[in-house]
């Protein structure tokens, strides 16, 4: 079908279209924004002859929504976070990788092989893992940042200059940690407290943005912001005097994964790309760029010394726990949706 589209495009616009003659194979990725360097895709194309196209999204939920709204069967791989792998698997959106189909599967670190959301890695491979909390511009605020109060009950210097991620799952999870209540709780008083907390905190927040989370901190448009650890490290390397916090209440941990989508139009290419990502050298190159952590044996030796030493990647031993976001039941999710709408109404 895709070929037909391309053919019609060529036919319709002979004068303008240079036909893609050399394509040996194709690969269609649905990926997070700014999460893989173009150079790496180019190298994959050079090595395999497979042409890669990529669309981007800015939250797990947006990816799910787009796929459910008729995009299944058009992408080969997407890169959901842990809880979203579970959801997609429950929705029947993932294909199963048979034993032996991935020749580099043995490279997956044991602790990332038996993961609750995909036991034995039947449909997914680890991509990058990291944490989400917040960063503070140290030129603006020099005080203690070891509490989630920075976001939810900020000091005067930061109030009104805070950017939040535009991601329901992570904002609500962090708010729950701030209040010390369990995620996806069914306790009505706790849910009410969560709603009330967000209502009070909202007055201190300037914007909701995920894809500009780094940019607003670098440009100084925001003085503090909820952000992923590696994204913050990149911001710091771009010259912003920002410090990533590991608050006492804890941080959100996440593992993004490459998943094989059901009805993938280029299944073979997708598996090749997964193997490519499981090569220690390749995933290390990606990790050096993205500034998070890999889940592949042998990748460490290719990591730069700077990356291994970044404060963003080294969680202090005395900081709070790292907690994965949970997928809530339909009933709790309905309440979460309400709270989120209340927050943005």
């Amino acid at each position: 079908m895709k070929a037909i589209h391309n053919a019609s495009a060529v036919a319709l616009t002979i004068a303008l279209l240079a036909p893609n003659a050399s394509a040996e194979g194709k690969l269609s990725l649905f990926h997070w924004f700014e999460y893989i360097p173009q150079e790496m895709l180019d190298r994959f194309t050079a090595e395999s002859g497979i042409e890669v196209t990529m669309d981007t999204y800015d939250s797990n939920e947006a990816m799910l929504a787009t796929l459910k709204a008729g995009s299944m069967g058009t992408y080969d791989l997407s890169f959901p976070g842990d809880y979203m792998v579970q959801i997609m698997s429950d929705e029947g959106m993932l294909d199963t990788i048979a034993d032996g189909e991935l020749k580099n599967k043995a490279n997956i670190m044991p602790e990332w092989l038996e993961v609750p959301y995909d036991m034995g890695r039947k449909s997914s491979i680890p991509y990058q893992w990291g944490t989400t909390s917040f960063s503070v511009n140290r030129d603006v605020y020099t005080g203690d940042i070891s509490s989630t109060d920075i976001l939810f009950d900020p000091p005067a210097e930061l109030a009104g200059k805070i950017n939040m991620l535009d991601s329901q799952g992570e904002v609500l999870a962090l708010a729950a940690m701030h209040l010390g209540i369990p995620q996806c709780t069914t306790d009505r008083d706790q849910l009410k407290a969560l709603d009330a907390q967000l209502q009070t905190s909202k007055q201190h927040w300037a914007s909701f943005n995920s894809d500009t989370a780094k940019e607003v901190l670098v440009s100084g448009d925001a003085a503090a912001g909820m952000i992923y650890n590696g994204f913050s490290a990149k911001g710091r390397l771009e010259g912003a005097n920002i410090e990533y916090a590991y608050p006492d209440q804890g941080v959100i941990a996440w593992m993004d994964n490459a998943v094989l989508l059901k009805d993938a139009p280029n299944r073979e290419s997708a598996l090749k790309f997964m193997d490519f990502l499981l090569e220690p050298k390749n995933i290390a190159e990606l990790t050096n760029w993205a500034q998070y952590s890999a889940g592949v044996i042998g990748a460490d030796e290719f990591l730069t010394a700077e990356l291994r030493a970044t404060p963003e990647n080294n969680k202090p031993a005395d900081s709070g726990p790292a907690v994965f976001v949970e997928a809530c039941s339909q009933e709790v999710q309905a309440v979460y949706d309400k709270i989120w709408t209340n927050l943005k109404k």
């Binding site: 787009t66 709204a69 914007s207 943005n209 989120w340 943005k344």
Partner: peptide, 19 residues
């Protein structure tokens, strides 16, 4: 700053966002 929903973003949210 995407702080408050407007009609357009409310509708988009139902098809391409969280809801």
């Amino acid at each position: 700053g995407a702080k408050n929903f407007m009609i357009g973003s409310l509708i988009e949210e139902q098809f391409k966002g969280n809801a």
